[in-house]
């Protein structure tokens, strides 16, 4: 099993009127990308602040590299907060050096490495410009550099893709993967599910201050895919649908006729989640009698599906509990 760089154990944190985190635990394996998902206000940022030693949990503990997290560990962590800004009146280079020095780099080291990064991102000519002259996207590049400059063992990005255009978002993704390949552990929170599929090895889904789902992305998708299939067919599916409703939860993905024009389309596609005890064979047999089957495939759910379904199910459960 992989070594865990960061372990969060039963962490709870309450503010005046609400519980921000309720007994949250998670393990972040070293050298992997870890996704922290959840609806707005679920408590993700609070958790990240605790991991960064900015706020203290009411109960529970955070272990970094096997020992209880201390202020000194912050030097090995790079954090890009969701809400971020720079000193407007300060020059870009001077400011980047300031942040790098706060992370423990010497002025000379910081300057040398910053110049390299600035060249790498093609922004070397910004060095002597004031931050207020930069656009938001430009400032974010600078912030990214500042976050990763001191070669932290753990990188934490809170909503890294918000505010980036697709080109820069892709640049950021490839940089993140490069850092992972160099052995850096990365945690990032996001609402962008497609980035989770391409980047994350593991995820945790937090809803209303609780950890409701944790695991490896590939495993989770396989697990969620169990009993899910797509069925495409030609012909009148009315009778078939009645039949299938008894065997599975049915969702029409593509109808047989265009609803706006009434023109017949070549095939109808249904997404099925089979009921307990129903096998794919039963479905094929039932379909084969009534329509011409065009295709029958296992369905691999997107992270979007997993996110929405898990959160909604959790919300229903909580309501019942209350």
């Amino acid at each position: 099993m992989d070594k865990n760089l960061l372990q969060v154990k039963n962490v709870s944190k309450a503010f005046t009127n609400h519980l921000a985190l309720d007994d949250v635990s998670l393990n972040v394996p070293e050298g992997k990308v870890y996704g922290l998902l959840g609806p707005n206000g679920a408590g993700k940022t609070t958790l990240l602040r605790i991991i960064n030693h900015i706020t203290a949990p009411d109960s529970g503990e955070v272990l970094f590299d096997g020992h209880a997290l201390t202020g000194a560990d912050v030097d090995h962590i790079g954090y890009l907060p969701e809400e971020r800004g720079l000193y407007k009146k300060m020059k870009v280079g001077e400011q980047a050096i300031f942040f790098a020095r706060l992370k423990g780099l010497s002025r000379a080291d910081a300057t040398r490495q910053l110049k390299q990064w600035f060249d790498h991102f093609g922004i070397a000519d910004w060095w002597n410009r004031k931050v207020e002259e930069l656009s938001k996207g430009m400032a974010q590049k600078v912030q990214f550099i500042v976050t990763v400059l001191h070669h932290p063992r753990l990188l934490i990005f809170d909503e890294p893709f918000s505010g980036f255009d697709p080109i820069n978002a892709n640049l950021l993704k490839s940089e993140m993967l490069k850092l992972r390949d160099e052995g850096t552990t990365i945690i990032f929170s996001t609402h962008n599910m497609s980035s989770v599929e391409t980047l994350c090895d593991n995820i945790t889904l937090i809803n209303k201050s609780r950890n409701i789902l944790s695991g490896n992305v590939a495993d989770l998708r396989r697990e969620f895919g169990q009993g899910r299939y797509t069925l495409a067919f030609n012909g009148d599916g009315t009778e078939l649908k009645e039949m299938l409703d008894k065997m599975a939860r049915v969702e029409t993905v593509a109808p047989g006729t265009d609803p706006s024009t009434g023109i017949s389309l070549p095939s109808t596609t249904l997404a099925l989640k089979l009921n307990e005890g129903v096998t794919p064979r039963d479905v094929i047999a039932a379909a084969n009698e009534r329509v011409e089957i065009a295709s029958f495939n296992p369905l691999v759910p997107s992270m979007d599906n997993i996110f929405i379904e898990t959160v909604e199910r959790n919300n229903r459960q909580r309501k019942n509990e209350e």
């Binding site: 960064n52 030693h53 900015i54 202020g71 912050v74 962590i77 790079g78 954090y79 890009l80 907060p81 969701e82 809400e83 971020r84 800004g85 720079l86 000193y87 407007k88 942040f99 706060l102 992370k103 912030q143 500042v146």
Partner: peptide, 17 residues
């Protein structure tokens, strides 16, 4: 001002408030 332009959030990741 630091609080408004959120630079504070970036600074407190390196130093204690």
């Amino acid at each position: 001002e630091e609080k408004n332009n959120r630079v504070l959030e970036l600074v407190v990741t390196s130093v204690r408030p």
